[in-house]
Amino acid sequence: MANGEMVMEPDSMPEALLAGIPVGGDRVRRHRLSTRLWHWLNAMTVTIMLMSGLMIFNAHPRLYWGQYGANPDTPWLEIGNAGGHGVLRIGSLALNTGMVLGLTRRPDGSLHATAFPGWMTIPTSYSLSDARMWHLAFALVLVAALLAYLVRSVINGHIRRDLAMRRGEWAPAHLWADIKQHALLRFPTGLAALKYNPLQKIAYGAVLFVMLPLVIATGTALSPGMDARLHWLVDVLGGRQSARSVHFLCAAGLVGFFAVHIAMVLLAGPINEVRSMITGWYVLPKERRAKAPAPGEEIAA
């Protein structure tokens, strides 16, 4: 179907067309320039932060709670190896991670003891200083880009109009209905696809207002220099080693978001979705009843 053309179809609503309201199949503006710019800059930055962060973790693959934590102390999470395979320890639980975490095989076949394997890290082979070089440089990009985007989104009304939950959307019945729609992979169509649904708003809100700010706050709390200025921040987080643990958990949360986000993009129509985040233009998915076979067309099995 030619995009952007108002083609009269038997199933479309003539009154909506007359009023200029877009319907399924129409090409519409979906994402503002600020959203598109930040989305891709942030995607790149978070990827670099994550991969360099995993290398930094490799330097001391143990996490603790509290103000202090070092080798003589008890970690709540540790990635190591034993008996010829990797081991992920969480509390008293020990998971066999095979050749993925804790122990990997190099291309030449030799074994390599490392928490996260080279294909997950920046740089590929062990270098704490190079990983810090990437991490500390892009930390500035992460903070500056998020601040600029949040300020812009307050000014242009993006947060109020698109991201804020409406009064009724927190209602359990409404959320449950949205969860069911997602589980059945029935994504909004027509005009409804222009608005974020409640689960989308919660996911984007969690990233924008919880995970990214928290990953920045906990990262800041790891700096002994900033700690001197911000005693309260370290105390609120429960100590520097707790901050390091929360920093890691936030990163894991962002990975979780990324996985669901990519799955949703693939299920909702990757080309249309990705194009809308690049050019801003989005083709509204057709209303479901418009999918009924046209007269004379046979129903395919």
Binding site: I56, F57, A59, H60, R62, Q67, Y68, G69, A70, N71, L128, R132, L222, P224, D227, R240, Q241, R244
Partner: peptide, 12 residues
């Protein structure tokens, strides 16, 4: 005071 190693661990 807290001693923070570049590797990530801390000792007081």
């Amino acid at each position: 005071t807290r001693h923070d190693c570049v590797e990530g661990w801390s000792a007081i």
